[in-house]
Design a protein around this nucleic acid. Sequence first.
DNA 1: ACATTAAGTGATT
DNA 2: AATCACTTAATGT
Length: 209
Amino acid sequence: MEVLDQFKTLFEPELVKALEEKATPVHIKEGETILEIGQIIRTVPIILSGLVKVSRIDDDGKELLLYYVNPNESCAMTFTCCMQQHVSEIKAVAEEDVFMLAIPIGLMDEWLVKFPTWKNFVMKTIRNRFNEMLHVIDQIAFQKLDVRLVNYLKEKSKVTGSTLINLSHEQIASELATTRVVISRLLKALENDKKLLLYRNQIKLLKDL
DNA sequence: ACATTAAGTGATT
DNA sequence: AATCACTTAATGT
């Protein structure tokens, strides 16, 4: 199977052979659903070409995009679900025409211990996805602290009766239960937005904060 | 001029 | 967001 060429550098020869023997090549046309929510997962996909959109359906029945699976990737959710014969929590639709390999999940346990490169591949896709989610969470949390900091500064200036605040980033950080580096960056961003001016041990609030 | 402390930055987790 | 490592700027002695 020529399509496996791209994996020959990534996977050990025995694994490539196992893929050829056990995996089923599958073509999916654009727009077709690969996996519905609630469907029992029986195979692990490896996308060879095309693009798969993975989404979640919320309580109102609305679709929420989780991530895309690119060529040479697999679906992180599948790994975590299939291990214990779980039902799919997600929906997968072919965004473009997809050509993929379907690997029976029964082989997963065996392959994980048998092929180090397979374990690496699985771990990598899970880790990549996990990091992606971490970033999203960080951004949400970041915005919260951003608002907290602005409120804190406003409060200080009201108490002081001045737009000049004599505090080091370090002091502010400990009051907001975070670290100096974080405060420095937030303040810098606010300065760039023309909300305030930064000096040493001193912050000048501007009117349009 | 030198040491100390505050602030800025990039990379990593 | 936190931490680390490192740079740069300001201040004090």
